[in-house]
């Protein structure tokens, strides 16, 4: 067993441990793991009480990473996130000292991110993309690995500030957290209301996780698969009446990284079409800007993405089938 296999087994073990705390939601767990393995940020969308915060908390525990939660409210200021310079008096005199905000942790849970003002939301931009926080004239590196896991509520949109497109693009995945099934709900209730709490074990540490991220980047991708990804990307930019604006190149990078991560977690050394199909919805659903036709026809992003995948696949099959 080589180091890739060992790491892959550890990742599967992480997934297993997270599953011990989070009943059901296996796809959500897998998607979050893929985003973490790809070094990307995740936007979780779901109703309140579905275990989003618990999920993030569990992940940080299993991965042995520092974790901070920021509850976004309308009066939250950027400095409340990034930290601020405060004057500190000492015997030698007065001087400004940077008081780091909650963003300086490995995993940041930005709870109900859409409730903060755009100015505050934008405070996350630099950290999410560059892993740097600039306060005043000084830039501070955030600890690695660094992930932002944000949540937002699809209802109660009153008094919220939808995330700007630029910020949405920084989220690698947008993961929809579904309501659990009856069996899953029973498990959740049983787990949380019993005296004995589930205790997830720590499997990885930050260094191993970074090593795993590097390994995932090495995964091979065939030309045919790459063409498939590019075809999907191009399909978002034309020929679909429901799409007003297509995905950015960053989306293509996200697909490739996500597909590689999935291949790695699947124990393969190459990306398959299946890997691409798996990650494309999570990558594209928050990057597509739908047209009025889509709204009027009741078509959502997932339906558009599914249609795009279907068309591209049919086109590919037609080309290969002689």
């Amino acid at each position: 067993m080589n180091e890739y296999d060992v790491m892959q087994q550890k990742l599967l073990a992480c997934e297993f441990e997270i599953g011990r705390e989070i009943i059901g939601q296996r796809d959500v767990i897998r998607s979050v793991m893929l985003a973490i393995l790809s070094g990307g940020n995740v936007l979780l969308e779901g109703m309140p009480g579905l275990g989003k915060t618990r999920l993030v908390n569990t992940i940080s525990h299993v991965l042995n990473l520092s974790f901070k939660r920021i509850q976004f409210t309308p009066d939250l200021m950027p400095g409340d996130i990034t930290g601020t310079n405060i004057m500190e008096r000492s015997e030698s005199g007065s001087a400004f000292r940077f008081e780091a905000g909650p963003i300086f942790a490995n995993i940041i849970l930005a709870d109900e991110i859409n409730r903060a003002t755009p100015k505050t939301q934008s405070a996350l931009l630099e950290a999410m993309q560059e892993h740097i926080v600039t306060v005043g004239n000084v830039s501070h590196k955030v600890p690695e690995p660094f992930f932002v896991l944000a949540t937002q509520n699809p209802i109660e949109t009153e008094g919220t500030y939808p995330l700007p497109e630029a910020q949405l693009d920084r989220f690698m995945f947008k993961i929809m957290v579904p309501f659990p099934t009856k069996e899953e709900l029973a498990g959740i209730v049983g787990l949380t209301e019993s005296v004995q709490q589930g205790a997830a074990q720590t499997v990885l540490n930050g260094d191993e996780l970074q090593q795993a991220i590097q390994m995932a980047k090495e995964i091979k991708i065939a030309d045919a698969v790459m063409d498939y990804i590019l075809d999907i990307m191009m399909a978002t930019h034309g020929g679909n009446k429901y799409v007003r604006e297509g995905a950015s190149p960053r989306a293509a990078q996200a697909i490739i990284r996500g597909a590689k991560a999935r291949a790695f977690m699947e124990g393969r050394y190459n990306v398959s079409f299946e890997d691409v199909d798996t990650v494309v919805p999570a990558v594209l659903r928050h990057r597509l800007i739908l047209s009025f036709d889509a709204v009027s026809d009741g078509v959502n992003e997932d339906m558009v993405v599914a249609e795009i995948i279907k068309n591209v696949k049919a086109q590919m099959v037609a080309q290969n089938h002689v």
Binding site: K220, A222, A224, V225, R268, N270, F273
Partner: peptide, 22 residues
């Protein structure tokens, strides 16, 4: 085979570790 053969064929001339494993 989930694109294993196609990927391996394209990396037939590569001799790095991940290519050999693949």
């Amino acid at each position: 085979l989930k694109e294993r053969v196609a990927t391996a064929y394209e990396a037939l001339d590569s001799d790095d570790r991940i290519s050999r494993l693949q």
